[in-house]
């Protein structure tokens, strides 16, 4: 029986051929070659079956296949199935939001920073840190924006993520008011 907070064994994202895009093993560190083999075995077990959950090699495996990727969480056999599955579905929900509704191999690789941060906010060292998808989304920063070219003098303008966003919401509010006045 597990009374510790350590709940998750590993978090994987595999592509359409079973190759890993993301893999984080929280507990035991098997040799890398063995990890690859196991990932491929798991992939062959779950690919295109959409069964959500199975027991394999004495581990509880929950997974979700979205487009050309599979997100997999592995935990111990006696772990609470419903709990682990909730974690999986919430993490993939927040990834959907963070990746603008396109979870696929290309996007994950392009926005790998966002994916990594999101998973790190959900699981730390195998401990579930947060499960609510909106909170997860709110914790992940977007990359610094493109406008920040070096030749512009940035000292006076607040061009950080937050500043830009404030400007945007200010603008939309003003536009809204104008429109209402016009009507």
């Amino acid at each position: 029986m597990n009374v510790s907070l350590y709940t998750i064994n590993s978090f994987l994202i595999l592509d359409h051929e079973g190759k890993r895009l993301f893999a984080k093993y929280y507990q035991q560190a098997e040799p890398i070659q063995k990890q690859f083999e196991n990932e491929l075995k798991i992939f062959n077990k779950v690919n295109k079956l959409n069964q959500d959950i199975l027991i394999y090699q004495n581990k509880l495996i929950v997974y979700k296949q979205i487009n050309d990727v599979i997100i997999i969480i592995i935990s111990n056999l006696d772990e609470n199935e419903s709990l682990v599955y909730s974690l999986l579905s919430n993490v993939s929900e927040s990834l959907t939001i963070l990746l603008d509704n396109t979870i696929d191999k290309l996007t994950i690789l392009q926005k790998f920073d966002i994916v990594s941060l999101c998973i790190d906010e959900a699981i730390d060292d195998g401990i579930i840190l947060e499960m609510d998808s909106s909170v997860l989304v709110s914790r992940v920063t977007n990359p610094p924006s493109n406008v920040m070219a070096q030749d512009i003098n940035l000292n006076k303008i607040d061009l950080s993520e937050k500043g830009l966003f404030n400007a945007l919401s200010f603008a939309s509010k003003k536009i809204g008011e104008r429109l209402q006045q016009g009507l």
Binding site: S4, L5, I97, L98, I127, I128, L129, E130, M131, D132, S134, V135, V137, S138, V140, T141, N142, E161, K162, F165, L168, S169
Partner: peptide, 29 residues
């Protein structure tokens, strides 16, 4: 908390004010 990401923007409805996860972590500790 939720203003960082444009998806939620300034909307405050349906967003949790807390998820009480700290209770879980504190209990474990």
């Amino acid at each position: 908390q939720f203003q960082l990401h444009e998806y939620y923007g300034s909307s405050t409805t349906n967003l949790p004010s807390t998820t009480f996860m700290y209770q879980y972590h504190a209990l474990g500790l």
